[in-house]
Design a binder for these strands. Structure first.
Lengths: 226, 226
DNA sequence: ATCGTGGTTTGACCTCGATCAAATAAGAAC
DNA sequence: GTTCTTATTTGATCGAGGTCAAACCACGAT
């Protein structure tokens, strides 16, 4: 891990993200004032469950996986954060302790925002508090969705749901490229890689074609029915 | 469902809860100013997925279950809220739409706080914003915990974890009464009632005794190892 | 005490997905 | 291209839980 200062490109990425977009420029500047950037190699562990965390993280580039360890060593993914996502904002309000491990899935650059300072700024700036609350809700919502899907859907249904989430409404024919390895998708969906593979092949008869990372849909209806 | 005004007893319950406790009296009063109380019978549906929701709810008495429906009609519990819990605060920031169904598990009284107003007050009062953020984090955390447990633990382990969560640290011998039917506990843990029953009997050999709603633990260590 | 009703347990069976092992494909480096 | 390495797929097996049915039990109503 190397740490650097924020350059103007990084700054642009930050300001263009969902979180900062809705803030007045002054508020953003105040937050970004003393931000530090750190770089991480694939597989690097960013922090571990239980550690003290005094930053909130923003993914400038790369991909981060949040996961917990079972006592037998198995891993369960909680979330995957792509470029432009802010994460671990909730630690700020829960004693600054990490409740999960985080790992760089690929070469990753993070912006680190001092959490104490951010919290203080949130107290003084209603817009920041509001943006934080929206972010917290979004993340809570994602966890809730995930929980519901785990409990209600079979593996092929979860995969279908993931595909549909990446396919604009109303279109029947569509194709897109997975933003990460199938490996990672499997983890995100709470499946073993083998199960994901089998799920894809089960979806083949509903008009889903998989070539490497490219997913093609030929019949949206069929997927929705699945 | 009948609606009433807030009486002084209700008010005491509200003010004694984790959320209001940390607020200055003036802030609490402002929030509670035009709160309405509604009463619900066992099994009443409070709201359904997708409905517009312009209140945040507080459980004055009783028990509420939050759940989603699968397209085959199966239900998956997202959370169970006991007396003194505030819930659906996240809808406030996500377009005031319910993302799940809610049902009274037993006779229940709810205080309904106007969400638009609460959001406005949060903008003006940093303490309220802060309390809301803490609440959001707690709920996000619960969902995350739940997801991790679902993915990492077997049924008996989840039950053990639930029991341990109700047992003070450091004590080896302990007993408590379930705050609801086994039925409900099963749902909360993502299990069929039969599976819960079998889990309990699997834990018997680790020193757990179940008599009706009373759970007795005779060997904390054994439970932790499970 | 008796009856009923609804919660809980037990048994039998079956499905889904985890796991292990092995075969393939797909990149990356040369 | 060739080779090495790492992803992905496929096959075979197994176990955790879901589901259905039936027995059991508790407790309130009569």
């Amino acid at each position: 891990m190397k740490t650097l200062r924020l350059n103007s490109n990084d700054r642009a990425v930050l300001l263009g993200s969902g979180f900062f977009e809705q803030l007045p420029a002054a508020a953003s500047s105040a937050i970004l004032d003393d931000v530090v950037v750190s770089t991480h190699e694939e597989h690097d562990v960013l922090f571990a469950q239980g550690e003290a965390l005094d930053h909130v993280f923003f993914v400038l580039s790369g991909l981060v996986r949040l996961y917990r360890l079972g006592k037998d060593g198995r891993e369960a993914d909680i979330a995957v954060f792509p470029k432009s996502e802010l994460f671990r904002e909730s630690a700020m309000f829960l004693g600054n302790r990490a409740t999960a491990n985080a790992q760089a899935i690929e070469t990753t650059m993070l912006a680190r925002i001092d959490s104490r300072k951010l919290r203080k700024l949130a107290e003084q700036t209603p817009e920041i508090a509001d943006a934080l609350m929206q972010l917290l809700c979004r993340h809570a919502q994602m966890a809730e969705d995930c929980l519901a899907e785990d409990r209600l859907l079979t593996a092929p249904q979860r995969v279908a749901s993931y595909i549909l989430g990446n396919c604009p409404d109303g279109i029947t024919n569509f194709s897109f490229r997975l933003p990460f390895q199938k490996n990672v998708l499997a983890g995100k969906l709470g499946l073993a890689p083998e199960a994901l593979s089998r799920a894809f092949s089960a979806l083949r008869r509903s008009g889903v074609t998989v070539k490497g990372r490219i997913i093609e849909i030929h019949d949206r209806q069929a997927l929705e029915r699945f």
